[in-house]
């Protein structure tokens, strides 16, 4: 029995040594797993600043043109100062249409591809931007939405890159809003010098109207439906954080009912108008009037006005519309 003790001690020492090795390996593995980010504090990026332009009293906050889509884009943008007021040579421009739906242009769920392509051409040919990226985070299948909307082909043809997820992925960004502090933002948003918001006007089951203010939703990742609990505040938070340089509203075809998904041509009215401006609240107010809605009674529009994002009156005041031609 006396000879057994040294053996037992040796065995215990070996067990301890093996335990130490395995424990060390376990610790190292644990540190490696932790450092991959699962529990690590995520890095939060700041949104680019100063994408807007200074107000210029020579130009109206909103201009409306009627006619063919391309001519209307050119006329409306010219009336608010021309594209060179908003985009400088050599800059990178992010164009954000509504490209969220697996729908054809006739169904009016997405921005008309001709409007998007004309905005791209203005940036590249007139303003001599170095790069134009057209991007959105669709609700429906991303690639189908990009192609069935017609925006993919039209924007590429005009010289833009067209990005949908997974693409370059998402960045956790600080929005600094009342309900939206940080959220995942589609990466092209972070590298652009200018943001041109190109929404379509349409009915929306939850918010009555979707237009310029709500279009920013389409640059978010994550489970966006979580935001529907506080939809009006969320929309205003996003609009406050993103602050587009210019907004060009497509009202070529307007989905009057059953939005945002729609599908039936009976729900779509041929309005044939495009509005441009720097006051996104005014542009939404104008869009609301096309739906026969009172913008003062649309909570996210009135909330945006109260947060200083623009003035409803600028959108509803009588104006002389530009006849842009076919």
């Amino acid at each position: 029995m006396s000879g057994a003790h040294p053996d037992r001690r040796r065995v215990l020492k070996r067990i301890l040594a093996a335990g130490a090795v395995l424990g060390g390996a376990g610790l190292a593995a644990g540190v490696a797993v932790l450092s991959r980010g699962r529990w690590r504090e995520p890095r939060v990026a700041a949104l680019p600043k100063a994408r807007g332009v200074e107000p210029d009293p020579r130009f109206p906050a909103v201009a409306v043109a009627r006619g063919g889509p391309e001519a209307s884009v050119r006329a409306a943008v010219a009336a608010v100062g021309g594209i060179a007021r908003f985009v400088r040579p050599g800059e990178t421009v992010l164009v954000k249409p509504n490209m969220g739906w697996d729908r054809t242009p006739a169904q009016g769920a997405n921005t008309d591809p001709r409007v998007v392509a004309e905005v791209v051409r203005l940036c590249l040919e007139e303003a001599r931007a170095a790069r134009v990226v057209v991007a959105d985070v669709p609700v429906h299948d991303a690639e189908r939405s990009r192609e069935r909307s017609g925006i993919g082909e039209a924007a590429r043809g005009a010289g833009a890159e067209v990005l949908v997820p997974p693409g370059p992925g998402f960045v956790l960004a600080r929005l600094g809003g009342v309900v939206l502090d940080t959220w995942e933002v589609f990466a092209p948003m972070m590298g652009a010098d200018r943001l041109i918001n190109v929404p379509v006007v349409k009915d929306h089951a939850l918010t009555r109207l979707t237009c310029g203010l709500k279009n920013g939703y389409g640059l978010l990742g994550g489970t966006r439906a979580r935001l529907h609990q506080q939809i009006n505040q969320s929309i205003v938070d996003i609009a406050t954080a993103f602050r587009p340089t210019l907004t060009v509203v497509d009202a070529t075809r307007v989905m009057m009912r059953n939005g945002p998904t729609g599908g039936r041509l009976d729900d779509v009215a041929p309005v044939g108008a495009v509005a441009a401006g720097t006051d996104v609240v005014a542009l939404d107010a104008w869009g609301a009037t096309l739906l026969g809605a009172d913008p003062e009674r649309i909570p996210h529009v009135s909330l945006a006005e109260s947060r200083g994002l623009g003035r409803i009156r600028e959108g509803t005041a009588p104006r002389e519309e530009i006849h842009a031609g076919p």
Partner: peptide, 27 residues
Amino acid sequence: MAKARPRSVVSALVVALPLLVVVAVVV
């Protein structure tokens, strides 16, 4: 020896604990 055994067991447990934690997390 009567004292050494519990100390060894405690030492083994202390060393093995991180390993157990990592295994639990992975599983």
